[in-house]
Amino acid sequence: MMTHEELITELSHRLNWPEPKVAEMLEAAVEVMNAQLADNNPITLANLGDFITRRKTEYISVHPENNERWLIPPAIELLFEAAPELKEQLINNVKV
């Protein structure tokens, strides 16, 4: 798994930027995207996918063993839908 630090190092190598600048830029980008998503504004990133929010309605969850019934409250959840370009790139490049 690529960690946050390794991501910064890789971006610094590709952009030929110093790592502090890359870290500052990444932190700012994350804050902006989080603010947009908290306002329930969907984000579309080309060649990556869509980040959308969806309201999940309340429902009653029944435990299969003891038949306990729990009322689950509604919630707003964040979903990610991959772009077709990303899917095609991954399928073509992935090594079985």
Binding site: M1, M2, A29, E31, N93
Partner: peptide
């Protein structure tokens, strides 16, 4: 920066590795 960030994520996923972005 955003385009390179997306490219790094897609290339890493092609290697069947996960990418963690703090926050």
């Amino acid at each position: 920066f955003l385009k390179e960030w997306i490219a790094v994520i897609s290339d890493t996923l092609a290697e069947k590795k996960a990418v963690e972005v703090t926050g």
